[in-house]
Write a protein that binds this DNA or RNA. Structure first.
Lengths: 186, 186, 186, 186
DNA sequence: AATGAATGAGCATTCATTCAT
DNA sequence: CATGAATGAATGCTCATTCAT
């Protein structure tokens, strides 16, 4: 995992992985048919950690707003607890961006996540009713903030975490401040 | 460029580039000393296109709010005009993320961009006065929206573009709607 | 080794080495990190052979004249026993002439060789008291004669070998012929 | 020539030669069909210089001993006058060692050189009557001494040059020192 | 289950040479 | 005569994968 984070997944050779792991190259291929399978197994391990963290703490009975706030907190706190995991996930997401397989799997296990966004929209709490957009907007902002806190741990505090969520929520929520009503055409 | 977008920069071999370009491999290295130089030359070409688009349309005399809104529009519209350029940039930014050289260069040519954010903060228009955070938050949201419109061109409309900016701005701006004042502790 | 002798070290490709060795190119690089490492390993093997031959037969307790004569004999006889080794060494010495590393290593293991020349000079047996010159003169003449016998094996005989040494010695030595009359048989 | 001396003939690319010469690569091949032809032309130029220097100063009417002494002086002095030429020749001789063509050509133009050695032997002045051996021994010792003076110019003096010849001559000559006492100054 | 030598296609790069201008 | 872009085979080296032990 550390090699993948430091050098990138493609640039890390199986020989180096084996050496770092203290085993022979052949051993790698005894446990994993291909390098990709190894990478995917690591991804699953980490994704499981995330899901389990969510499962342990996520309160399903809260309302949509509270649930989306929970997801924000849980994701970022998990990332801060497991910075290497979070860093690996960033690498993985990018390198396998196009991989439909991974995304389908994510969808299945992220049902509570999806449901939250769906309910958020159907409850008319968001400015935008396009599911994909809201989902995308939520994921990116969460990732951005998680990465930011990992890169600048000294800036982290419960207040700052709450503030980041409020920045997110002020943006997407349906509450229009009065002073935004008359926007001049640019 | 298309190969880089489809397969990634590392995974595109010089042999394939040459074949696609209809020249011999040697010819590549006659024009560019290394593959990296070729990639960087392409990046410069594209970055120049972006900068020139900005220079052509950016009104420096507007206030900070209007300038940040201009940047949002200009970036996204440039991306929609040159989707391949924008896609390449996403690849490049990730693959060379750590490259300090590239970032330094960006900083120098993005002075008007940086100045806008600085003034935004000093004018007390933002919820957060940390330059790096506001900058990061702006860039990511802009990139996200740009990518979103490129992936879903059917959703693009001037109204939708304005809406995405308002979502961004409602988030980061200092205007707190009344109904957000009493946030329950979760 | 044979390829290096026939074509030169630089002009022998790793692909050809592998082919001649009956292995895949990759196998070469499994055993030796670089071509240079392979060449150096071969050199060490051969140099070890020379040193071991010397160690086995060289009588350290003889006087300087007898020791230099021994070196002459041992070098040339080793070359005749291992003509390919000697030929490779000629190639290597030239190609890596400037290589300070190799020369340093040679110096360390050739202490008895150096000591012999030093004592030869300090015993006032040579016409010239410049160490570097005497050393150089000795090495070149020895190499020349070794190569000559390898190229013309039909000319080799114990008498001819002795004669070559006497030609060398008559040149460098300080002696009038009279005091050279009773040379003990080595 | 300087590139060949510094980097070796093979390791100097035609592109670099052209650049150093301030012309386009194509221009090289306009004047010389191949790189080898260029190298050979340079060799001829330098060899001509040597031959001309010999022709200018060589006194054919001297006896064999005096003639061989002249050759020693002329060769080494030419080398000291044209160190780069001499260095190139060393490179060339080695890289094209096996080249029979070059050697044949040398033979034709070195007739006075060959004749000298032949007469030396037939006059019974040498310890050894094998032409090839005496020739080889002479050439190597001359080259060695020439290279030595080029590498250590501070050691050169007319006396030292005479001494090197005497070391050579004491070695190969048939004479007891008594009949070597009255050497005419050349 | 573990090993590590062997594989060979693939990689970025070099370079003598050609040729249209 | 001069140019320099174009060529493509060749080079040293890498690497995911295999397989006999």
């Amino acid at each position: 995992m550390n090699l993948f984070i430091d050098k990138g997944i493609q640039s890390t050779s199986t020989a180096l992985i084996a050496k770092e792991a203290g085993v022979a190259t052949g051993t790698l291929f005894h446990h994993f048919k291909t390098k990709e399978e190894l990478v995917h197994a690591l991804y699953n391990l980490i994704f499981d950690s995330l899901i389990n963290f969510h499962k342990k703490h996520f309160r399903d009975d809260a309302n949509a707003y509270e649930r989306v706030r929970q997801l924000w907190y849980l994701n970022i706190e998990w990332g801060l607890k497991h910075t290497a995991y979070a860093n690996f996930l960033e690498r993985y997401v990018f390198d396998y961006y196009a991989s439909a397989v991974a995304m389908e799997d994510v969808g299945k296990r992220f049902d509570y996540y999806i449901n939250t966004i769906v309910e958020l929209i159907s409850s008319n709490l968001t400015q935008c009713d396009n599911f994909e957009y809201v989902m995308n907007h939520f994921s990116w902002n969460m990732r951005m903030n998680g990465n930011y806190f990992i890169a600048h741990p000294e800036l982290y505090s419960p207040e700052m975490l709450e503030k980041t969520f409020q920045i997110y929520w002020s943006g997407i929520s349906n509450n229009t401040p009065d002073n935004m009503k008359n926007i001049k055409e640019y």
